[in-house]
Write a protein that binds this DNA or RNA. Structure first.
Length: 143
DNA sequence: GCCAACGTTGGC
DNA sequence: GCCAACGTTGGC
């Protein structure tokens, strides 16, 4: 199961607002970037990702889950771009700030650091586990 | 609010 | 198909 990161300005769409959408979540329409599109096409229902607040807060604030597979985005008149649905899973007990990500050497290769403008990003398993831990989520002991 | 980085557009 | 101009994003 791959992991992802979704980015949004909280003034446009916040994690709290996504929580308010309940179990069905909402469609993540409006993405107009080809790298982000490829990432969404690779997503499978049930895969989880982080939710990052850009500009205000600048922190990973919660866990989300893909609740509907990639399909055309009705808000794109050209029909070139698509979307998935995501729903909120849980907030991070302790949001992981961009400063904290940048201060952690093991996260230096994260897309959030190296390609900060990409709105839908892949997250490696190592990055996922480390940020969950930094965010205060319990982690199963490794074998 | 500034500006660097990046993606997109459009003229040639 | 190149590349300059432009618009947008997002950190600072």
């Amino acid at each position: 199961m791959a992991h992802w990161l979704f980015k949004s300005e909280p003034s446009a769409w916040s994690f709290e607002k996504l929580v308010g959408c309940g179990a069905d979540g909402t469609d993540w329409s409006g993405v107009r970037n080809h790298s982000a599109k490829l990432n969404m096409q690779a997503m499978r229902v049930g895969e989880q990702g982080f939710f990052y607040h850009s500009n205000e807060g600048k922190a990973i604030v919660g866990i989300v889950e893909v609740s509907n597979a990639y399909r055309p985005d009705p808000t794109d008149p050209a029909g070139k771009f698509g979307m998935v649905d995501i729903r909120a899973v849980r907030p991070l007990p302790r949001p992981v700030t961009l400063d904290a990500v940048k201060a952690e050497k093991r996260l230096a290769a994260m897309a959030l650091v190296t390609n900060s403008r990409l709105s839908v990003q892949p997250v490696t398993e190592a990055e996922w586990a480390l940020i969950c831990e930094m965010g205060g989520l319990w982690q199963p002991p490794s074998i």
